[in-house]
Design a protein around this nucleic acid. Structure first.
Lengths: 235, 235
DNA sequence: TCAGATAAAATCGTCAAACATTATTGACCC
DNA sequence: GGGTCAATAATGTTTGACGATTTTATCTGA
């Protein structure tokens, strides 16, 4: 059996530099617009409007929407179209419970793979930028930098599966939804957590990086507990 | 800003009973064929062949392939098409590292939510079927039952995010790749692990369910260590 | 005026056909 | 056998079409 099947593994990894397809570009554009606040949770995405604005065909757009729906960023409803997902309180806690062990794994692995001090420095630089951007009012820039921080952390760990699975885009959505509703102190604590984590990674202290990420999530849960119900859509 | 945006949350959850789209059916069909061994890792998926065999248009097929690529089940290479992903050794260990904390979370939550004894019994029944199917030679049936076991475990936990994130289909792919290469003892241990987990869930012993799932993964890693290199594609 | 029924418009899901771009194949030549 | 180049096949993307369904607008009657 299986005669003459050409095996194409994953090690090829030529997927990094090949030009992205139209649907990938569209998906990235939509996630970016969410971070920037131009698309808000609950918003209805109309195919005619998007195809004309982004200059692509319906087919490519639908591929992108399918992708985003798989990531949980948009919700597809038959014959009613695509909506930017809105996370209710339970969905947020579920997201945090799921994201936490993955983020801790990422932090641990990044600290263990301390081969590249270059990347670790970049991580610290990103953490510093986060503390600067926090409170500057540039919400979109803060969220974009935060996403970069996580992408870097995961890349450092070198676990390709984690990079595929960890719901960072969904976390973007969650952050975009609650970011403006937090107090100054809450925002400051959040940004400061990243600097502590980056320092532990730089030190190669995997156990501490893991623990700090856990405390970071504990802080986020505390913040969520304090948020008013109006932040979340009706259950 | 954001004037007049109708908020559509996720609580609606009417997505359960609405008829599946063509692309969803196709994606499910392909995953099933992988479990059944009719599609093997590394195999090239040709659009003309699939559209005619499955009776759908190219557009719908491409949506399905995009979905599967997001799940890491097929690898898309520009202008060269879709291949069933082949996991090399590192990818397998990465998958196990990522999957383990999620599976433990699922087991813990399922044990905590011990409201529905009905579901717990179903879980135990599934575990029993797994021990029967193990060694029966019905590889496809075993993998399908195993997938059902995990789906049930996750559903019991009630964490929707976990259900979206956990890479079960990728685990299916991994299992399909190595299942026939395991020894009788390895297969028996694997199947038996599920029964122990189901029992802990039934008892509502979250800590034990978590720990047992961890041991289950330790066993799987041990099995992987013992497998020959020929099982995996060239790095 | 307003609630309910009806018609019209808009939108989605799917398919079919077409064209441009790229990879693969195979003939040809040395 | 190895290399060059045209023919072939497959993919990426677009456009147009049609039925199904939802949403919006209009009309009616109380």
């Amino acid at each position: 059996m299986n005669q003459g099947v050409k095996v194409k593994g994953e090690g090829d990894a030529d997927s990094g530099d090949q030009p992205r397809s139209a649907s990938d570009r569209v998906a990235a554009a939509i996630v970016k617009e969410i971070r920037m606040g131009r698309l808000v949770p609950g918003q209805h995405l109309l195919e005619p409007e998007l195809t004309s604005r982004l200059g692509i065909s319906r087919g490519s757009l639908r591929e992108a929407l399918k992708h985003l729906a798989a990531d949980g960023i948009v919700t597809l409803s038959r014959f009613r179209g695509a909506y930017i997902s809105a996370l209710d309180r339970k969905a947020v806690y579920d997201l945090l419970d799921t994201l936490e062990p993955l983020a801790r794994l990422a932090a641990r692995r990044a600290a263990e793979m301390n081969t590249s001090k270059q990347k670790a420095k970049e991580l610290q630089a990103s953490a510093l930028r986060l503390e600067e951007l926090q409170g500057s009012g540039k919400r979109g820039d803060y969220l974009t930098e935060r996403r970069y921080f996580y992408d870097l952390l995961i890349e450092m760990g070198g676990n390709g599966e984690l990079a595929r699975v960890i719901p960072l885009s969904r976390a973007d959505l969650f952050r975009a939804q609650v970011e403006t509703r937090q107090s100054e102190a809450q925002r400051r604590r959040h940004a400061h957590g990243y600097r502590l984590i980056a320092a532990a990674v730089m030190d190669g202290d995997a156990k501490k990086a893991d623990q700090l990420m856990g405390e970071h999530f504990a802080g986020t849960r505390e913040t969520m507990d304090q948020l008013a119900d109006e932040v979340f859509p009706a259950a």
